[in-house]
Write a protein that binds this DNA or RNA. Structure first.
Length: 124
DNA sequence: GGCATGACATTGC
DNA sequence: AGCAATGCCATGC
């Protein structure tokens, strides 16, 4: 597994047990290889649909050798936020393609690759 | 505690 | 379709 469920994370965040950044990291670890999510989607999964920018802020603070799959988080329109970054941009695109996410003209087909959090596993 | 910052999202041209 | 203007809100100083 990859740690606590999304619901647990959201609750911990709501209770103030963890900071927003930590919640973001935990949530991003739930995105499976071969799928992508928008910053807003991650924020929404945490119960803060308007905090998309903060998700990016949190990911920007990650160290380069992190185990958090930050490359699976892109913009809601399918474009890569870091494509202007000479280092991480090409890396992100390479990582995604390596995982089977097709990129056409600097964009991902969100309708096809967007991550759908599994809400059926929510605890009774 | 107030103010500026930013890997976004949405809307209006 | 593409670009500018606005709204958002966690962080850090």
């Amino acid at each position: 597994m990859q740690g606590p469920s999304l619901v647990d994370i959201a609750e911990a965040l709501a209770d103030g047990d963890v900071g927003f950044r930590m919640a973001v990291y935990a949530a991003v670890r739930h995105i499976p290889a071969g799928a992508v999510a928008g910053y807003g989607h991650v924020a929404a999964a945490l119960g803060s649909p308007r905090a998309a920018r903060q998700v990016g802020y949190a990911l920007a603070a990650l160290p380069p050798e992190t185990d958090v799959p930050w490359w699976r988080v892109i913009r809601s329109d399918g474009s890569i936020a870091l494509q202007g970054d000479p280092n991480r941009g090409p890396l992100q695109a390479a990582m995604l393609r390596q995982e089977g996410v097709h990129i056409h003209d600097h964009r991902v087909d969100m309708a096809r690759f967007r991550w759908r959090p599994d809400l059926s596993i929510r605890p009774a």
